[in-house]
């Protein structure tokens, strides 16, 4: 298994609990992992708690949610006890986030350049002129051909792939050391998806950033990430090197892989996942 370099994120026994009228619901039920300068994939189906895990690290959860953890350490910050003020210097500045659909994550009434500049001015406390320069440089880094033109465009004037590049540029302007990408390519077409993954890879590797890559797409995670956590019903059922996914041992992981239609291994019928109640129990 790929050894992560000294972890920047250390999570131990993380739980996310929601208070509801029908009593508390645990969306994340005791998750432990570390993340270094690597591409860590988190895989799971809807409701497995993968998004909540990412959001808990950012402390971006609704008020009804309670975050409990034995340890939630990001570099020198204890995320579980940090004040909201401290969190503001972490969120966006040191941990960046990319969401699924740029159509909904960008401000529709601000030009994209202004939005990126705002990040630079807010987090780096630079002047207007410098923020603009940094923005243009950043747009160039995410391979946008004509940064001066794109700077003035509004979100509805850009394509999905371009929108996601802009999101990445916006996040990178504050040079975070950790990026949480929650289904960053799910809203994109296949041909664009490849380009965005390539860009993410280039940035993560060249800048030595840690990447938490949340996805439901096994094939994509397999080819993109270094290490994969497989989540089921709020727990991690298996941690495995992405290259070793073929030799996964947990029946849930195996079931997921077999349920996937594959061009290189056609079958008449797909295997149907038989859910075992014992998967709900903590492992070991």
């Amino acid at each position: 298994m790929a050894k992560p370099t000294q972890p920047m994120l250390d999570v131990e026994n993380l739980k996310v609990r929601f208070r509801t009228l029908a009593g508390p619901i645990e969306a994340v039920r005791g998750v432990s992992f570390t993340l270094g300068k690597e591409k860590l994939g988190i895989i799971g189906e809807s409701g497995s708690g993968k998004t909540m895990t990412g959001r808990a690290v950012m402390r971006l959860l609704p008020k009804s949610a309670e975050i409990i953890a034995d340890k939630l350490q990001f570099e020198d910050v204890d995320l579980s006890t940090a004040t909201e003020r401290q969190m503001q210097s972490v969120r966006g500045r040191r941990i960046g986030m990319i969401l699924q659909d740029p159509k909904y994550s960008l401000n529709p009434v601000m030009s994209v350049g202004q939005q990126i500049s705002e990040m630079a001015r807010f987090h780096l406390r630079v002047g207007k002129r410098e923020a603009e320069e940094r923005t243009l440089a950043m747009l160039e880094q995410v391979h946008i051909r004509d940064p001066h033109r794109v700077y003035r465009l509004y979100p509805h004037e850009v394509s999905g792939g371009m929108g996601q590049r802009i999101m990445i540029a916006m996040m990178l302007v504050a040079s975070p050391s950790l990026i949480i990408a929650d289904e960053p390519t799910s809203a994109l077409d296949v041909s664009v998806r490849g380009q965005i993954l390539e860009l993410l890879d280039e940035i993560v590797v060249s800048r030595g950033i840690g990447l938490m890559f949340i996805s439901h797409d096994l094939n994509m995670v397999r080819s993109f990430c270094d290490r994969v956590l497989i989540m089921y019903a709020g727990r991690i059922v298996e941690t495995i090197a992405a290259s070793e996914l073929e030799n996964a041992r947990h029946p849930y992981t195996i079931g997921l892989l077999e349920a996937l239609p594959r061009i290189d291994a056609p079958r008449d019928r797909l295997a149907v996942l038989q859910r075992d109640p014992s998967w709900l129990e903590p492992t070991r």
């Binding site: 997921l256 239609p261 019928r269 797909l270």
Partner: peptide
Amino acid sequence: LDVSVQAEVLNLLK
């Protein structure tokens, strides 16, 4: 749909 549910629906369609 999720991967595992997709498999069930595709099997049904077949």
